Amino acid sequence: MQIFVKTLTGKTITLEVEPSDTIENVKAKIQDKEGIPPDQQRLIFNGKQLEDGRTLSDYNIQKDSTLHLVLR
């Protein structure tokens, strides 16, 4: 499925993911596309910070959902 990740600069990254993917996996995909190390990434969905060990389906993230990427 496709999800979107919006950065603070207003750029939107499109990712191909599975609901069973962990947040860690998603961060690795963002690193592949953008070169941002996962330990600098914080992903936010519906105002909640997403934890590495959880999956997209844990957070009820579905296709065409938009996550927000904050760098630390």
Rank of each mutant, 00 (worst) to 15 (best):
P37N: 07
D52N: 03
S20V: 05
R72A: 11
I13K: 02
T7D: 03
S57M: 05
P19T: 11
D39E: 03
D32H: 03
I44D: 12
L15K: 00
I30A: 05
T22Y: 05
V17G: 14
E51I: 11
N60T: 02
Q31E: 14
V17E: 01
S57I: 05
E34R: 11
V5S: 01
L15W: 01
Y59V: 15
G53Y: 08
Y59L: 11
L71G: 14
K33S: 08
E16F: 11
T66D: 12
R54P: 10
N46L: 04
D52R: 13
V5P: 00
I44F: 06
L67N: 01
D32W: 12
H68R: 09
V70Q: 06
T66W: 12
N46E: 15
T55L: 04
E34D: 02
T7K: 15
I23K: 01
L43S: 00
G10I: 03
K29S: 12
V26M: 11
G35V: 05
L50G: 01
Q41F: 06
K33H: 14
V70A: 10
R54H: 13
K33Q: 10
Q40V: 10
S57N: 15
T55V: 06
G47M: 13
Q2Y: 13
I13T: 08
I23D: 01
V17A: 12
T12V: 06
E34M: 07
A28R: 11
P19I: 09
R72Y: 14
K6H: 07
Q40Y: 02
Q31V: 06
D32R: 04
L15F: 12
G10R: 02
I23V: 14
L50H: 00
T55M: 13
P38Q: 08
G35Y: 02
S65K: 09
V70M: 09
L8Y: 08
F4E: 15
F4L: 04
E34P: 02
K27I: 02
L15Y: 04
D64E: 10
H68Y: 05
L67V: 04
I36W: 08
K11P: 05
Q31M: 10
G53F: 11
S20N: 07
N46I: 07
L56F: 13
G53A: 06
